[in-house]
């Protein structure tokens, strides 16, 4: 084990981890927004839009992120749509994550007892008000475990970004293996950095899930 080498390349990994995290977070934020919109459309059974959302969910869930990225990054420019690698990465992640987030929030919404909504209506609240003050907050609470599971899933998926020449952790590790042939050290650092990113989210998820067992909202 060559510790001097590991110390030398540490800054490279740090830079890569920051890039991984930044694009990952951008993608996750967009995915969350997309997920909320899609979930509400499905829940409210908005005609036409609902069918579109269902088609989107099927497409997004049944194709690999790598293939989605190849199409966005290498294919779309040929049709005149040129995006930077970073935007492609975030867009791909959002396209993939949107459907998973939609599923998480939709089941959260459906877990809120219909009685809640009916009571809100009978109190004279509008559709938007009901969503904002009654159904929404309860749904958010119950969908947090699924949301965190999706965050982990999406952060893991960022590992394919190196395929569209983003200098993320995988790219850095592979590059260093090629340059110095210090395979074991480079891979060890790779594992450590991924653990560093993913373990806190995973532990939070487990803790929240344990707590959720006790959180029963009004039925």
């Amino acid at each position: 084990m060559d510790f001097a080498y590991m110390k030398n390349v540490l800054p490279l990994y740090e830079k890569a981890a920051v890039l991984t995290l930044r694009i990952g977070l951008e993608g996750i934020i967009f995915a969350t927004f997309a997920g909320i919109v899609c979930a509400v459309i499905l829940y409210e059974k908005v005609p036409v839009l609902r069918q579109l959302v269902m088609v989107y969910i099927e497409i997004s869930r049944n194709t690999p992120l790598l293939v989605q990225l190849f199409f966005i990054y290498y294919g779309l420019p040929k049709a005149g749509i040129v995006l930077s690698a970073e935007i492609c990465g975030a867009a791909g992640l959002a396209f993939l994550g949107g459907s998973y987030m939609a599923e998480a929030f939709r089941s959260g919404l459906e877990n809120v007892a219909p009685l809640q909504r009916e009571s809100a209506y009978s109190l004279g609240m509008g559709k938007l008000q009901t969503m904002r003050y009654v159904v929404g907050p309860q749904a958010v609470a119950t969908s947090i475990p699924a949301f965190l599971a999706n965050v982990i899933f999406l952060l893991k998926e960022t590992s394919v970004f190196s395929a569209i020449s983003l200098m993320d952790l995988m790219f850095t590790a592979k590059d260093l293996i090629g340059l110095y042939y210090k395979t074991t050290e480079s891979l060890l650092l790779l594992v450590i950095f991924y653990l560093f990113i993913l373990l806190p989210v995973s532990l939070t998820g487990a803790a929240v899930e344990r707590r959720m067992k006790y959180a029963g909202s009004g039925s």
């Binding site: 893991k156 995988m170 995973s202």
Partner: peptide, 9 residues
Amino acid sequence: IMPQLVLLF
């Protein structure tokens, strides 16, 4: 917890 690509590597 490890991305599958890391495992492949």
